[in-house]
Design a protein around this nucleic acid. Structure first.
Lengths: 251, 251
DNA sequence: ATTAATAAACGTTTTATAAACGCTATAATA
DNA sequence: TATTATAGCGTTTATAAAACGTTTATTAAT
């Protein structure tokens, strides 16, 4: 690893961070996951030994917090900082890297077979950054149509998605998947894409616009060939004030 | 570490698991945390160098999953298996062990100052096991009246408690803090202790007994000097059937 | 036996929210 | 100026929450 990358600090060889980056594409109304290619061609072979996709991750440095590792990985991959991220689970099974390709890959990269990885998921709109000219050649895939994945990354994504589905019902995190200014319809599309359900637009609309933390702006959509819709923003401050002592037991 | 304990497998020196054990005491209606004493007297001193409380934890073995580490720690401490546990966060700040006592302790125990710990919280009724003759000399403390804590364990408990408060509103985990058979009042007491609120008994009672997964037993409380109350049980099966596709957006 | 004390358990009314549906309004474009 | 697609408003009904009052079953004391 240190042979291929010039790094400024010592890595902790058995601890890494992996990031499940969820992006919502409001045009295709699709919840996507950002993956990078894992490609390895050994000298003695025509066909690649490894050719699939994985999440982007990296080892933690000796002098770094886990959150900082995640921030670093995210910055390198997307160019963005201050992204919404949730550390949701550790994957530390001694047999995480079990299939043949993983073993070939791990040997080639000389990395510790007993690495425990701390997994985060991240929420952003897919258009928050550009994929072109990105050295990692990342690609968006709809969360329900993922390609073949290396390591235990399918499992990690599954668990991230389950956590997201659950959390989105109670916490105001949908907004992280949209631009600062959004329409009610986009918000509904986002919920529908995450939860895989259909929601009545009229009831949804009413429910949302009556919330005090959903604030109508003096602005409408432009560049649409239909009735342009009202833009709204989400006020985190107002939300937190209201929900500071809300404890509706809902079991 | 390996000098004091005879262990059957190699530990991973920089990875540990810590368990925040929450116990509900239905008599005192108190949500408690189980702590063990951390005590060290150096040869050259009269007063102990370290004398405070910590969570129980241990390093992960080379051939062990993280969950198994937690199970092992819990079994050793409580004698119990199959406890409800939730892996809720990793604490990996390079400066986690910052105060003087932690440094003295870490040196004495020769353990890695850059240990990342994977924290779980566990739910059980305090009377699920006995404290007497326990080699770790564990003690229950009300979650809001904790003694001086070592390492970053106050922080870990705070975050565990925050997660519990949040989770208890949406997931059927209160039942883990009670015996299999419980009264509606005990259930209410548990919610009140966790959330630190008062709940109207009449509304709470009605709400709960109409749930299909709260099942009235052919049994009443005994040994009480008041009207004995009806015992109930929680059916996980029924719960899961009902809530498989519930997605009430509640932001 | 009667009564007091205590918590269990049931009931009623009001208010708020959710669900299900019909209908109107506004813009770009043809 | 008509078309069309989506934005956006309205109404009614069903369900659940909130805020109370009242009754009942038990033990223990008189």
């Amino acid at each position: 690893m240190s042979t291929t990358l010039n790094i400024q600090a010592e890595i902790i060889p058995n601890i890494s961070v992996d990031c499940v980056i969820f992006g919502f594409d409001k045009n295709s109304k699709s919840l996507n996951v950002l993956l990078i290619e894992r490609f390895l061609k050994l000298e003695d072979s025509e066909v690649p030994a490894v050719n699939d996709y994985v999440l982007r991750g990296f080892h933690t440095f000796e002098n770094e917090t886990i959150d900082d590792t995640a921030n670093r990985v995210l910055k390198e991959l997307t160019g963005l900082e201050h992204l919404y991220k949730k550390q949701f689970k550790v994957f530390g099974d001694p047999n995480r890297l079990k299939n043949e390709k993983d073993i070939i890959w791990a040997e080639n990269e000389h990395f510790n077979r007993r690495t425990i990885t701390i997994a985060y998921y991240v929420l952003l709109p897919t258009d928050a950054f550009q994929l072109e000219n990105n050295p990692y050649k990342p690609k968006w895939f709809p969360v329900n149509q993922l390609p073949e994945l290396g390591f235990d990354h399918q499992k990690i994504i599954n668990e991230a998605y389950a956590d997201l589905k659950e959390k989105v019902l109670h916490k105001p995190i949908v907004f992280e998947l949209l631009a600062d200014k959004f329409t009610i319809k986009e918000l509904q599309d986002t919920f529908e894409a995450i939860l895989g359900v259909e929601i009545d637009n009229r009831n949804f609309r009413r429910k949302l616009i009556t919330k005090k933390y959903i604030i109508a702006l003096d602005e409408k959509q432009t560049g649409v060939s239909k009735k342009p819709s009202q833009l709204y923003m989400f006020s985190k401050d107002v939300y937190q004030k209201i929900y500071k002592e809300s404890y509706l037991i809902n079991i």
